[in-house]
């Protein structure tokens, strides 16, 4: 999907770099990301293609939902990644605020639009699943509302990081918003257990057997794993572009000063 990048920064990694800061060197990040991107994209595409064909044409229909249950193979991975993506956004924000990691700010900025996209998929497919099964495109129950709040948190992060003249201040404001929004994640997860909702509780849990026929579970696991790889590939590509764009800005600024 996306080709390897050939740009190699001439700067050497700082001496004695340890822990996360080993990846702070932009040149090294670009090299690693460029090497990983084709593989991550390809694995994601293959898994999703297998899972979707399996789910659409080979998995059994549900006894009461009929074929509408096949919307699950896109809805559930999108929902998982909407939350997981926000967790990644919050982690990047924490690393940026506490450790001032030079890539973390950029990572947060680039994760947000991808997370917003997957949240949008979750909302649209959920709505299209809800109408024929529940009888309504939308209801204001705790699960649906908290996922809509997640979508607005993503949009708010996107807007906030671009609202300041100095990017540093935008990053700072966005990081704080991202961390405050983490409160919403357990609400999304447990809304269906804590309060009466129209949305059903989770079928796949860590504690019990999945309340789903195995012939439906397998394609779901394929699309979920594949979608995770695609999410990662999108973030890697956007982050690589952002690193290069930052370098371009620095070079242009240096050139403007030099002349």
């Amino acid at each position: 999907m996306l080709g390897a990048m050939e740009v190699v920064s001439p700067t050497a990694p700082p001496r004695g770099a340890r822990g996360l800061h080993r990846f702070a060197n932009p040149g090294r990040f670009l090299r690693l990301a460029g090497r990983a991107l084709p593989w991550v994209s390809a694995i994601g595409l293959v898994l999703v293609a297998l899972g979707l064909v399996w789910g659409l044409f080979f998995a059994p229909a549900d006894w009461q939902q009929g074929d509408a249950v096949r919307i699950m193979y896109v809805h559930v991975p999108a929902a998982w990644l909407a939350s997981a993506g926000y967790m990644a956004l919050a982690c990047a924000s924490a690393v940026a605020l506490v450790w001032r990691h030079p890539l973390a700010d950029l990572a947060a900025v680039e994760i947000a639009p991808v997370g917003a996209g997957f949240t949008a998929i979750c909302l649209v497919t959920g709505s299209l699943w809800g109408k024929p099964m529940w009888g309504a495109f939308w209801v204001w129950d705790a699960r649906l509302t908290s996922v809509l709040v997640l979508f607005f948190l993503y949009l708010g992060h996107i807007a906030l990081t671009r609202a300041f003249d100095s990017p540093e201040r935008g990053y700072r404001a966005g990081a704080i918003l991202a961390l405050v929004g983490v409160v919403n994640l357990p609400i999304i997860k447990f809304s269906v257990d804590w309060w009466n909702t129209l949305h059903q509780p989770a079928s796949i849990t860590l504690t019990g057997a999945p309340t789903m026929y195995v012939g439906m579970l397998w394609p779901l696991l394929f699309t979920a794993l594949g979608a995770s790889f695609i999410f990662a590939a999108l973030v890697l590509a956007r982050l690589s572009a952002a690193v290069m764009e930052r370098r371009i800005r620095a070079l242009l600024a240096a050139r403007a000063e030099g002349t």
Binding site: L2, I71, V74, H75, K131, L234, M244
Partner: peptide, 26 residues
Amino acid sequence: LAYIVPAYVSALVIPAWLAGEAWLRL
């Protein structure tokens, strides 16, 4: 099908659009 098709289309179009955008930027 009237619900399955638009659901799958939205699930393919949004990531494809993000991928195209990322590729152009790169």
